[in-house]
Amino acid sequence: MATPMPRILIVDDEADLVETLARAARREGYEVDTALSGAGAWDRLATRPYDAVVTDLRMPGMGGAELMDRIVERGVRTRVVVITGYATLQAAIDCLRKGAVDFLQKPFEVETFLERLAEALAKPLPPGPPNWHEIARRHGLTERERVVVEALYRTGLGNRELADHLCVSPHTVKSQLRSAFRKLGVENRTQFLQRFVAEPAVSPPPRPAPGSPGAPGES
């Protein structure tokens, strides 16, 4: 019995781009569904499994970041590839922290999209987010320490911003992180994130020359 081709969901509020990418993916033999919004994508994800979701980051209503949050919260196992015209290093880090397996900057060649999609599909399905209650139990973290490191994992905020987020003092955050890091066997934030956040490649492809064939526009 033949192995079924991967099923892909492409999400972007730019209809022409969605159609261009969907047409190219179908030529490669993929089964492709599309959505023009995060909400529309979630409706599809709630009813059938996908091997990969390719989503724009900024869309009216539910954007790609919120869609990824919902995928994680509801335990949907799929590979997420983010495409965006607003790429920054922090945006890439945030997407990877949310579970994306790749980050592709617009504009890009259709051939580049297909290559990166194939690379994403070759990767194993990402695991679910860390079970912080189990990690806390295993390493002897206090409840306060667990709350702080979980918030750091989810937000990546600096100490002062993290303190505001948790409604505690920066001193409390610094103290709890120092103690938690010691118990977890890491020395600093960098080691913590390297240990608990997946690190797929995030460097964007070379930008094609303006007006070159197969270079979708920014959105």
Rank of each mutant, 00 (worst) to 15 (best):
E66H: 02
D43L: 09
E14N: 10
E150Y: 01
L121W: 05
V18R: 00
W42D: 01
Y86R: 14
P208R: 09
E111C: 08
W132D: 02
E150W: 00
R116C: 01
A87V: 03
L121N: 12
D33I: 03
P127D: 14
D102K: 02
A92Q: 08
V80D: 01
L21K: 00
A46F: 00
T3Y: 07
A92T: 10
F103I: 09
V18I: 09
P124Q: 10
V81T: 14
A52H: 00
A35V: 03
V110N: 07
E134Q: 11
L9K: 01
V197S: 09
E31D: 10
G64D: 06
V54R: 00
L9I: 08
G214W: 03
W42N: 02
H171A: 11
Q191W: 02
H165Y: 10
A46H: 01
T34F: 00
H139E: 08
R7W: 09
P208T: 08
P127W: 07
R48I: 06
A100N: 14
A209D: 08
S219D: 10
K98I: 06
Y86T: 13
R77M: 05
D164L: 13
V72L: 15
A35W: 02
R97N: 07
A122I: 12
V82M: 12
Q105I: 06
P208H: 05
P127S: 15
A198R: 15
V147D: 06
M1D: 09
D12F: 08
Q90S: 15
K106I: 04
L166K: 02
A215D: 13
G64Q: 05
A122T: 13
A198E: 13
L141Q: 03
I135W: 04
H133Q: 14
E134Y: 02
S37R: 08
D164S: 13
I8K: 04
G64Y: 00
S212A: 14
A46Q: 07
R144Q: 10
L184K: 04
M62C: 11
L193C: 04
T172R: 02
L152W: 06
S169P: 02
I135G: 00
H165W: 06
C95F: 07
G63A: 06
L193Y: 13
I135P: 12
D33W: 05
L67A: 07
D56S: 06
P126L: 05
R154C: 05
C95V: 01
A2T: 05
R26D: 02
A201F: 11
V110P: 06
G214E: 09
G63Y: 03
P129L: 14
G63Q: 03
Q194C: 14
R23Q: 13
P170E: 09
P126E: 06
A22N: 07
D13I: 11
L67K: 02
R178K: 15
F108S: 07
Q191T: 11
L9A: 03
A25I: 01
S175L: 12
Q176H: 12
D43G: 09
P107W: 01
P170A: 08
N159H: 10
